[in-house]
Amino acid sequence: MIKQRIASLGKSTLDTFESLGRATIFLCQASIGIPGKEGFHLWLRQMHFIGVMSLAIVLVSGLFIGMVLGLQGYTILVDFGAEDALGQMVSLSLLRELAPVVAALLFAGRAGSALTAEIGLMKATEQLSSMEMIGVDPLRRVVAPRLWAGFVSLPLLTIGFSVVGIWGGYLVGVDWLGVNEGSYWSNMQASVSFIDDVGNGLLKALVFALVVTWIAVFQGYDLVPTSEGISRATTRTVVYSSLAVLGLDFVLTTLMFGEL
């Protein structure tokens, strides 16, 4: 009994490392796309599906989160008579944490799952195999443009999230609750550093973009080509990438802001 347990532990460890290894080789092979105009067009198409189509959900969420931050921040700060620091609170929370993390989670749900399902379906209907047999590497033609589109899209979406969120905080704090407009902006400007806050936030977004897109395309490419396999892989994409984003966020925050 115990021997069996230990053996199954060993098996799952080996399986995990094996699939990590496969995923790494996969990433290396898929990172180089098709050069030239054709590759650019393939990338552009994916930018449309992955980036532009995710814009609405990301911006709307950003607006609401900014508004909630404005409201919550005000009720806390007003007790200390420090409601002038609202801009600082809203902008720092968004730039450092909420924008990269929430945008990445939304991106995993909206674009990541769609990527897995799309590539998985192409695999299930033998489109990837037939592309290989035509002599075209599906890693370069199908996966690489998606990988790069995801890698570029998420940081742009994160910027949009921050901008809309800061505006949402302004809307609630200044327009509705009467915080002084000048102090909203000037407190923000005095405390936000472009390199440390905006830059680190963007760095987080880049890391999340790589991880989420990588998980999504790998799950799609590696799945068991049945309808059950596709649904499992889609779920795995969302679960794995959400966990990876939250875990990595902690690690990155410690490195960037933890003064270790």
Binding site: M47, V52, S153, G160, S162, V163, M188, Q189, V198, L202
Partner: peptide, 22 residues
């Protein structure tokens, strides 16, 4: 659409640089 998306992202970054980080 993609062009506007990228442009909006860059403008957003400029906004974050000028108005937010001052």
């Amino acid at each position: 659409g993609v062009g506007l998306f990228v442009l909006a992202g860059i403008l957003g970054l400029v906004f974050l640089g000028l108005s937010v980080s001052g």
